[in-house]
Amino acid sequence: MKRIQSACIMQTLRFQQKDGSGLPAEALLQLNRSEVTRYKAQLEKTRTRHRIDSEEEQPDGAIILRVRKEYNNSASVGDYFD
């Protein structure tokens, strides 16, 4: 019989700017930043155990977020967050 000893999800998320909205570049970048902030707040609100490995703004205004998240509440995350 096999059992999951530890598990997590490693994700690379790209928060991309909306095209064709007619807003200035700085306003679009601010919208992008607020979307990332909402995503992080949602992780906290749902008490999802996570670790953000990196957050990078790209020249085109996109934000790349690399995150490790708990797979589910019943599986240990082991040493993935060490």
Rank of each mutant, 00 (worst) to 15 (best):
M1Y: 15
K2H: 12
K2W: 14
R3D: 12
R3A: 12
I4Y: 10
I4Q: 14
Q5S: 13
A7F: 04
A7D: 05
C8K: 01
C8R: 02
C8W: 01
C8N: 02
I9G: 01
I9D: 07
Q11E: 15
T12A: 04
T12K: 05
L13K: 07
L13W: 02
F15N: 04
F15W: 04
F15C: 09
Q16G: 10
Q17T: 08
K18M: 10
K18R: 05
K18W: 04
K18E: 11
D19H: 11
G20P: 10
G20Y: 06
S21C: 04
S21E: 07
S21Y: 06
G22M: 00
L23S: 03
L23I: 00
L23F: 01
P24V: 05
A25C: 00
A25V: 02
E26F: 09
L28H: 06
L28Q: 11
L29V: 00
L29F: 10
Q30D: 00
N32L: 03
N32I: 14
R33C: 07
R33D: 00
S34Y: 03
S34K: 07
T37R: 03
T37I: 00
T37K: 04
T37N: 01
T37V: 03
R38E: 09
Y39Q: 05
Y39W: 09
Y39E: 01
Y39N: 04
A41D: 04
Q42A: 14
Q42L: 10
L43Q: 08
L43S: 10
E44W: 09
E44L: 13
K45C: 04
K45M: 06
T46H: 12
R47G: 10
R47N: 08
R47V: 03
T48E: 01
R49F: 09
R49T: 07
R49P: 06
R49M: 11
R49A: 07
H50A: 08
H50V: 08
I52A: 02
D53N: 09
D53F: 06
S54D: 10
S54K: 15
S54Q: 10
S54I: 14
E55Y: 06
E56S: 11
E56R: 15
E56A: 11
E56K: 15
E57T: 14
E57P: 10
Q58K: 09
Q58V: 14
P59F: 07
P59W: 08
D60C: 10
D60M: 07
A62L: 07
A62Y: 04
I63T: 13
I64N: 13
I64Q: 10
L65V: 15
L65H: 05
R66P: 13
R66Q: 14
R66W: 03
R66M: 06
V67R: 01
V67D: 01
R68T: 03
R68K: 13
K69G: 02
K69T: 03
K69E: 02
Y71I: 07
Y71L: 12
N72S: 13
N73T: 13
S74A: 15
S74I: 15
A75F: 12
S76P: 12
G78K: 11
G78R: 06
Y80V: 01
F81Y: 03
F81K: 01
D82F: 02
D82C: 09
D82W: 02
D82K: 13
